[in-house]
Design a protein around this nucleic acid. Sequence first.
DNA 1: GTAGTCACTTACCAAATGGTAGAGACCGTA
DNA 2: TACGGTCTCTACCATTTGGTAAGTGACTAC
Lengths: 197, 197
Amino acid sequence: MTTKHRAISVASVGFANKGVAATSLEEIARQLGVTKQTVLYHFGSKEGLVSAVFAESARALTAELQSASGQSEPGWPSIQTMVRASFSLALQRPELLGLLREVSRMGSPWSSEVLEIFQPLIDEAINYLDKGMDAGVFKRSDSKLVLFTTYAAITAVVSDTEALRALGLGLDTRVAVRLRSTVLSFLEAALSPETPE
Amino acid sequence: MTTKHRAISVASVGFANKGVAATSLEEIARQLGVTKQTVLYHFGSKEGLVSAVFAESARALTAELQSASGQSEPGWPSIQTMVRASFSLALQRPELLGLLREVSRMGSPWSSEVLEIFQPLIDEAINYLDKGMDAGVFKRSDSKLVLFTTYAAITAVVSDTEALRALGLGLDTRVAVRLRSTVLSFLEAALSPETPE
DNA sequence: GTAGTCACTTACCAAATGGTAGAGACCGTA
DNA sequence: TACGGTCTCTACCATTTGGTAAGTGACTAC
């Protein structure tokens, strides 16, 4: 892997965990085993590195979710598939969701730049839900806020780890599976037209 | 209001919105109309200011929620009361929830210091839910993760405003009410023993 | 063999940051 | 009037930050 690629990878983790402002070029360079100037050589400026990190992460994240979205039938099973994909992403590449949250943050200077990459995926999701509701496959509900709540719960599991710890839980596979069940129950209650029981 | 109090108030907003690292003493002082040294005089160091902000905010937040928790009967109505109180807090003092999330963040240096203030409130909530489940007032479910999901949804509304914007929503009263309904439906589905309908 | 490019270095620099030292203004008390 | 305490200021300081300039070695094309 080239230094440039490694730099993006290392910076992703730093930016996601501590935030962009609190992650210095020197710190990133040290982890790479090169000098700060080498990082600047590859990206021109810190802003250049930040853009590269966000662009690459957004690309990877959409690719991952996009590939999951085409895999199963419309209706409840495909929702399960998407949620499962999101949670396995949360465990395997937590920094992707961490960065998503960093950019979703109030007043983030990169939000417009990055979120427009996600716009198609978001629109697709909302459309999918709304059409499902029109067709009677899903119960009528507030699709945007159902999506937002799901987003919040999933990103929280990688970002709000201290809150999890305060509940006596750590971020591991078992907890992730339990939260996945909770989220799926929420979605089932919000979307399932029959009352199962 | 004294300069010290105003400093805490101004710093709260900065820390909640941009993060502690990205909010400088000079910036805070400028908003107060004093010099940086005046701020340092009152708190000794930036770390001192940070501690004061977190301590004061944690105190205000617990007080607010504590007072709501004693107001209504055990069971479903009291959950409604708590959720309503949280949402009105989100609209009226968003920085309190923003700071809570800042401290819940992975690897936050202040988490232990602050979250232990919340520990009694958290324990009380979990206990409340578990007892309700034992008594059959609530459906048996994963109380900790139900609480965590609710926390995630509520804090997201003040912190992930860019994500809300990407959904075509802004943070206003109407959206907050809609999200509150969504959260309450989730809780009702997770906790209500009878299947209403 | 030499010109050129790529990846990286050392040597600096200006600005911003948190922090210290000391002095002046105000205020109640003796 | 003098005194101690509180609050704020000006004047510095050391460190860290992102960034520039210039150079070195390796590898390639002609």
